[in-house]
């Protein structure tokens, strides 16, 4: 956890000094969209991703990235009658996220477009969302 706090502090200072914004890139895929690749192709894909992430890290734009397990539940309904719905992994799922910082939405979009997920998988989508910052409250 200490590692994460340190990262967070560094990020906030960085944001303040350069007026960079944080963006959440949500990776949406059709189930295990890389399952059809051969071991060799998977390795090639991995190399591309590592080059991509290495570049983001070197320029200080990558704050965090995590995969999400292909299981879980979806809670829906209203208070008092909440349902733990089954998690359907055959449809589009959020496979993971990248938390990046960029000067503008355009730059964040560019970063998302360079993700190798578009080269090797099929039907992947990336949702680019600015993190909402309220001045004086959580800024």
């Amino acid at each position: 956890m200490g590692h994460f706090c340190f990262k967070g502090v560094k990020t906030i200072n960085h944001l303040k000094s350069k007026k960079m914004k944080e963006f959440m890139l949500l990776i949406r895929t059709q189930g295990d969209h890389l399952a059809e690749l051969s071991p060799e192709q998977q390795q090639q894909h991995l190399k591309k991703v590592m080059t991509y992430m290495g570049g983001l890290m070197q320029s200080g734009k990558l704050n965090s990235a995590q995969p999400l397990d292909m299981e879980g539940v979806i809670i829906s309904g209203a208070a008092g009658k909440l349902k733990d719905g089954p998690f359907n992994e055959t449809k589009e799922v959020i496979a993971g996220y990248f938390l990046v910082q960029a000067n503008s939405l355009e730059e964040a979009i560019q970063i998302a477009k360079e993700n190798p997920v578009f080269e090797d998988g099929t039907g992947a989508r990336i949702e680019v969302r600015p993190i909402k910052v309220m001045e004086g409250i959580n800024g």
Binding site: L34, Q42, L46, M50, P67
Partner: peptide
């Protein structure tokens, strides 16, 4: 084995090798 590699790639894609 295919599942194992897939798990690797799904995790390493975000957390690095």
């Amino acid at each position: 084995v295919q599942d194992t590699l897939l798990e690797a790639i799904n995790v390493w894609n975000y957390k690095g090798i």
